[in-house]
Amino acid sequence: DGAAVLPAPQNLSVQSTNMKHVLTWSPVMVPEETVYYSVEYQGEYESLYMSHIWIPSSWCSPTAGPECDITDDITATVPYSLRVRATLGSQTSAWSTLKHPFNRNSTILTPPGMEVTKDGFHLVIKLEDLGPQFEFFVAYWRREPGAKEHIKMVRPGGIPMHLETMDPGATYCVKARTFVKAIGRYSAFSQAECVKVQGESLPL
């Protein structure tokens, strides 16, 4: 094991949005040299029962950049400890460990992107494809006094979905939010989008 002469990476942190988790750190600078990094993780199980076991991350053992996509490693809703060390030739730094274990239930859930379109008299929505862990709750209504709001659960995203057959001359509005069962959380609703249908509105 090479003597630990390289400085250990600093400022480890995790950015997590919509269940995509990226570990970042400050790069170790060595003029005219490429420093590589190795990332390892421990789930709560390992830290409780097998604390000597650290698992090499799927994509970053080693990696050249000061960041690592750990999404495929964080596969349960429990705290994960993460550590990084730098390597240059035979020189290896000490491990730097994330100050607070990361739990994916802290991920930021953003309102989903959506496209609301008309196909003749059909109200159609296409939602952002956020991956298999996401369900979508779509609310839609006819814009008129006392309108009733309808709710539909859509899964997965990325595929156009028929919501309603519309009346001529009417305006319909749609908004959506995501739900991730693995962490039991919803996003905020997106802004409502409205479409108006051609033709004379029918007498009430």
Partner: peptide
């Protein structure tokens, strides 16, 4: 990695 994923899911 796979065993860890299962073990941590069982813990949850």
């Amino acid at each position: 990695r796979k065993i860890s994923s299962i073990a941590n899911s069982f813990l949850y």
